[in-house]
Amino acid sequence: MSTEWTAQSSGTGEYAEVNGINLYYETHGTGRPMILLHGGLGSGEMFGPILPTFAENHQVIAVDLQGHGRTADIDRPLDIRLMADDIAALVDHLGLDRPDVVGYSLGGGIALHTAAKYPGKVRRLVATSAHVRRDAIPAEMLAQQGQVNAAAAEFMKDTPMYELYQRVAPRPEDFGRLLDKIGAAMAQDFDYSEEVRGLQVPTLIAAADADMAPPSHYVDVFKLLDGGLRDGGWMGEGRPKGGHALAILPGLTHYNIHDSPLWAATVLAFLDAQP
Rank of each mutant, 00 (worst) to 15 (best):
E163D: 10
E140M: 12
A130D: 01
I205C: 01
P240C: 03
A213N: 07
A247E: 02
S129D: 04
Y218D: 00
V201F: 01
H131E: 13
D209P: 03
A127I: 02
A136P: 08
G236L: 06
F175A: 02
D180A: 03
L178M: 06
Y192E: 15
L179P: 00
P214H: 05
K181A: 14
A151W: 01
G183C: 07
V148A: 02
G236M: 07
G146N: 02
A153C: 06
L249Q: 03
L142H: 08
A143S: 15
P170V: 06
G228M: 03
D220S: 12
I205N: 00
D220W: 11
A139K: 12
N149C: 06
F155H: 14
K223G: 11
G236E: 07
D211V: 08
D231A: 15
D189G: 14
A187F: 05
Q166H: 12
D191K: 11
E237W: 11
A184H: 07
A150P: 04
D209N: 10
A139N: 11
A130T: 04
L224Y: 04
E154P: 02
P240W: 00
M235R: 15
L142Q: 14
R134Q: 13
K157F: 01
G232C: 10
L225E: 00
A139G: 09
A152E: 01
F175L: 02
P202R: 10
Y192R: 13
I137V: 15
M156N: 05
R134V: 07
A127T: 11
D220T: 10
R133D: 04
A184L: 05
L225F: 02
A169W: 09
A184D: 07
G242T: 02
G198D: 14
T128D: 03
V168C: 10
A139S: 14
L204C: 04
D180R: 03
E173Q: 14
V126H: 00
A150S: 12
E154S: 09
L178Y: 01
G238P: 02
G236P: 08
D231V: 13
S193P: 09
F190G: 10
P214I: 05
G236A: 08
A207L: 06
A139L: 13
V219R: 07
W234D: 15
D226M: 06
G233T: 07
Y165N: 01
D189H: 14
K181V: 02
G232F: 12
R133H: 10
L199K: 05
G238V: 01
R177K: 11
E154M: 05
D174S: 13
R167W: 06
G232K: 08
L199P: 05
V148P: 02
A207C: 14
A143K: 13
R197I: 07
A213P: 09
D180G: 05
I182E: 05
G242K: 03
E194R: 15
D220M: 08
H131I: 07
D158P: 07
G243V: 11
V219H: 05
R167N: 10
D135L: 12
R239Y: 13
I137T: 14
S193M: 11
M212P: 04
P172I: 08
E173Y: 09
L229Q: 12
S129I: 01
L178T: 01
L142V: 10
P160L: 10
Q200H: 13
D158M: 10
A136N: 12
S193R: 15
L204S: 00
G183R: 06
Y162I: 06
D209G: 06
